[in-house]
Design a binder for these strands. Structure first.
Length: 261
DNA sequence: ATGCCTCAGCTCCTGAGA
């Protein structure tokens, strides 16, 4: 007996501001596992009770002002990890747990700011650390989902202005090399397993009416392991939360998997 | 043009995001 399970990722850009929208969205969509990025709150502020009342167990890992991640699931997550083991990091960027036999990694990849900057170098080192760790996780967990805000586009199809953004942040060959190397571990960009409308993006700048003009980037991804690939049924970017009065600049991405119960 | 929005915080400006 198989059950369609929904896995989703959403950069909420402050869970304090977006909590009501996240709760509404969970109620309207039968999502089983949701990872959040940019919660921007310390652990003592995390609204675990509100999620519990909505039917979700939570694991969270945050800090003041920046970053912060969470893993919500209908059934509790086991073997939870926070950040990349063996990669020392001041920032709260990764949360990982096993939900119903599937290893779930939620990640907020570094922005990188500008090629050549210290922050870009940190992004490169972080990507190397992530890949070494994910390789080991894959060896232990054939069923693995790696999802979150990658802050990297795969190719020109993910960019509203490919020529204008050539070698700009999120679009450099250095970043894309690391993204391809992750995929080469035995992962698949679940979004591209299915037919998608052209100019599909997951993030739009708040400025310049970028959402209305669809000037965006696809930087939020759900990668799935070889074992999960044949179980994938659909992957979509849900733009409906953008109708809220104060939306996040990111839209959630949702994957449907036909997982054995 | 080093900013156009949005958010947090050492809050009436700045840093950061992407």
């Amino acid at each position: 007996m198989n059950k369609a399970m929904k896995f989703a990722t959403w950069n909420v850009n402050s869970l304090t501001v977006r909590l009501p929208q996240v709760l509404d969205w969970l109620q309207a969509n039968s999502v089983d596992v949701l990872v959040l990025q940019e919660t921007k709150m310390t652990d003592d502020k995390f609204p675990a009770d509100a999620f519990l009342a909505a039917g979700y167990q939570a694991q969270w890992f945050g800090q003041k002002t920046y970053n912060g991640v969470a893993l919500l699931s209908r059934t509790p997550a086991a073997d939870v990890l926070k950040n990349i083991p063996e990669f020392a990091d001041d920032m709260a960027r990764v949360i990982c747990g096993t939900v119903g036999g599937t290893r779930v990694i939620g990640a907020y990849f570094p922005n990188g700011q500008e090629p050549g900057s210290d922050k870009f170098e940190y992004k490169m080192q972080w990507l190397k650390g992530l890949r070494a760790w994910v390789k080991r996780e894959l060896e232990q967990h054939p069923q693995l989902v790696l999802m979150g805000d990658y802050n990297i586009t795969f190719d020109d199809d993910d960019v509203w202005d490919p020529e204008g953004m050539r070698e700009q942040i999120h679009c450099t060959e250095d970043e894309r090399y690391h993204l391809r190397a992750l995929v080469a571990l035995g992962l698949h960009d679940s979004y591209r397993l299915f037919a998608q409308a052209p100019k599909s993006y997951s993030w739009w700048d708040y400025r310049d009416a970028a959402f209305r003009r669809n000037r965006g980037l696809r930087i939020d991804h759900i990668l799935i392991s070889n074992a999960l690939k044949p179980l994938a049924r659909a992957c979509q970017i849900d733009k409906t939360p953008r109708k809220n009065e104060r939306p996040s600049d990111h839209a959630p991405v949702v994957l449907e998997l036909d997982l054995p119960l």
